[in-house]
């Protein structure tokens, strides 16, 4: 961790605030380099560079409007949906520049997303989870049944919904809906799952369940989570990036960010002086 301070590490010369763990010889799952993003004339991200490790939970924290959600959405190119978004820099996932290959569909099957509010479709629970695989052309009933069961088990909600798979998903509670959303993302067998404040609309008990779930999921998935809740970041993440005004101020092991941040602004934020 002192490599950043000394500035001798070659990662730092590349302009990275990341790569704190010296022992990580293995290549990062997601590697972001000098990412700038503009909404029309307004710049929302400034030279963001960070490496996200495989099968870890990486939390993005920072005050509202700091660009953390915008950054998250560049990872599966959801920003493409907004008119006038311009991007420069590189994002590589598994060594592939995702903005150079034009196959957004393939990218999004590999990088799943869970949104702030549960957004299940007005269909049955089964059809919601089977939606993605079906759109990929899987029609075999047995196979779909298997995917749906595995996904719902993976999202720790199978026991609660197994007897009502054919009923409307919108009849579930908010917390249950969010876990079905996670199941829906898992059903695509993604490598990376992005979560955009997934518990901000949930009550404390549902939040706890989702947090437990995330902790369990990291053995299979690389998870990037945006959160407003600093305790949450501290509880569930391995690494934390602190965003402020579109810049990454500090990116480090979560324990370091919360116990001995190097930047004054990080310290002010995590101790609740602003934000």
């Amino acid at each position: 961790m002192n490599t950043t301070v000394m500035g001798s590490n070659k990662e730092v010369r590349k302009g990275k605030l990341s790569q704190m763990n010296d022992q990580s010889a293995d290549k990062a799952k997601i590697s972001v380099n000098d990412l700038d993003l503009f909404y029309g004339e307004k710049q929302a991200l400034y030279r963001v560079s960070l490496d996200i490790q495989e099968k870890e939970v990486t939390a993005l924290i920072g005050p509202s409007g700091c660009g953390k959600s915008t950054f998250l959405r560049t990872l599966n190119r959801m920003n493409d949906l907004i008119d006038g978004v311009k991007i420069s820099g590189e994002i590589e996932i598994d060594n592939e520049n995702i903005y150079q290959s034009s196959d957004v569909i393939k990218l999004r099957t590999k990088v799943g997303m869970v949104f702030q509010k549960p957004n299940l479709f007005p269909m049955s629970i089964f059809d919601n989870v089977a939606y993605g695989p079906r759109m990929q052309g899987i029609k075999n009933k047995k196979e779909l049944n298997k995917i749906v069961e595995e996904s719902l088990r993976g999202a720790a909600i199978w026991d609660e919904v197994k007897d009502r798979l054919k009923t409307s998903a919108l009849g579930l509670s908010g917390g249950q809906q969010q876990r079905v959303c996670i199941a829906r993302a898992i059903a695509m067998k993604p490598a990376v799952i992005l979560m955009d404040e997934p518990t901000s609309a949930l009550d404390p008990i549902s939040t706890l369940k989702v947090e437990e779930l995330i902790a369990n999921m990291k053995k299979d998935y690389t998870i990037v989570i945006v959160t407003h809740n600093m305790q949450q970041a501290a509880r569930i993440s391995d690494k934390t990036a602190f965003f402020l005004n579109g810049e990454v101020i500090e990116y480090d092991e979560t324990s370091n960010i919360f116990s001995m941040p190097k930047d004054q602004r990080t310290e002010d934020y995590v101790t609740g002086r602003f934000g």
Binding site: N76, M78, L81, I105, K106, L107, R108, T109, K110, G112, M113, F115, K117, N119, L120, F121, P122, Y131, G132, M135, Q136, C181, R184, A185, M188
Partner: peptide, 24 residues
């Protein structure tokens, strides 16, 4: 949110339109 949810699952715009948007 329906649109986003569907597109984020790696569906095409046409699939999203046909399977999610038009039915709703």
């Amino acid at each position: 949110a329906y649109r986003e949810g569907s597109l984020a699952l790696g569906t095409t715009k046409l699939q999203t339109l046909y399977k999610v948007i038009l039915p709703s």
